[in-house]
Design a protein around this nucleic acid. Structure first.
Length: 291
DNA sequence: GCGTCCAGGTCTACC
DNA sequence: GGTAGACCTGGACGC
């Protein structure tokens, strides 16, 4: 118990819906034990030490068990609140769903909090790993990054990525054409030219922030809009091949249609439309998991 | 076993 | 601003 941190949660929070919100729970250093319903993650202390943690529900609170003493309790609570989106206010989102029978389950299951990493840096690298490949390859790339460049299971730092060659990313990480992108991104962050963490609190209008994100090589419309969701902005739909196919199946008699038609369908949901389409297409995931 | 296609897209050159 | 073609990889699929 001495190495456990207990965190209060808002009334409209649901641990399982958040963990299952998208595939992030399957990407290292996350791992999920669905039998005991424990989400593992390896935090990183300010001095770089890896801090393995197990996150679970306990009597209406979130419980974080740390395997070793000497961690910064305040940091663990702050980062856990961040990755579970405990401070996000979804009242406006839920209110918007009133009267939409198809989406009633979202509020019932308290869905809508998208699991994220403690840093935007980590979410940015992972998002690039999701582009133009199967989910299986995404898992391989992220696992290789953590295993071969991370310290004791923690996600690697920009410094760790910046020091490696393109051949290393191609041969060891299996990053393919993304390999030079990883190096350029890491070098920009290390040099101070780019600060992904600033996107969390940016005053820029969303279209401008999206433009800034797209200046990162490997980040296009889908990746930028996915990252925007992870920093709390949901104006973009983040359409990818999977989301499109689900829309065709659920709203268009299994026939392909233009992205503009999809955009028109969700336009009524205003600033929350990106979260609405995600929930609309992922009910089965939230209920039974993304795999 | 082998070839093809495509997946949680993006970049560049060209018009 | 819009579009065609190239780009790594791994797994599914058809033959």
């Amino acid at each position: 118990m001495k190495n456990a941190v207990f965190i209060d949660v808002p009334d409209d929070f649901n641990f399982r819906s958040t963990v299952y919100s998208h595939g992030w729970c399957e990407l290292a250093p996350f791992s999920l034990d669905e039998d005991s319903w424990q989400l593992s993650y390896v935090f990183r202390s300010k001095d770089g030490t890896a801090i393995p943690a197990v996150i679970s529900e306990d009597s209406g609170q979130v419980r974080v068990d740390l395997s070793a003493p000497g961690f910064d309790r305040e940091q663990i609570e702050k980062e856990t609140r961040h990755l579970l989106r405990l401070d996000d206010d979804l009242a406006g989102f839920y209110a918007l769903l009133d009267g939409h029978e198809r989406l009633e389950w979202v509020r019932d299951r308290r869905a809508g909090r998208l699991l994220r990493s403690p840093t935007v840096w980590e979410d940015l690298v992972k998002t690039i790993c999701t582009t133009n490949c199967s989910w299986a390859l995404t898992r391989i790339m992220v696992s290789n990054l953590v295993t071969k460049l991370g310290h004791l299971g923690a996600f690697p730092t920009p410094e760790a990525l910046a020091g490696m060659s393109e051949e290393f990313y191609r041969n060891e990480i299996r990053g393919g054409y993304r390999s030079p992108y990883f190096i350029e991104l890491a070098e920009r962050v290390v040099s101070g030219d780019l600060d992904p963490e600033s996107w969390l609190t940016s005053d820029l209008p969303t279209p401008e922030l999206k433009k800034a994100m797209k200046k990162v090589k490997g980040v296009g419309d889908y990746a930028a809009e996915n990252l925007l969701k992870l920093v709390g902005r949901y104006e973009g739909l983040a359409l990818d091949s999977w989301l499109r196919s689900q829309f065709y199946k659920n709203h268009n008699a299994e026939k392909k249609c233009s992205d503009k038609k999809i955009e028109r369908h969700y336009h009524r949901f205003g600033q929350w439309r990106g979260l609405v389409i995600w929930c609309d297409m992922t009910e089965k995931w939230i209920v039974s998991g993304p795999s």
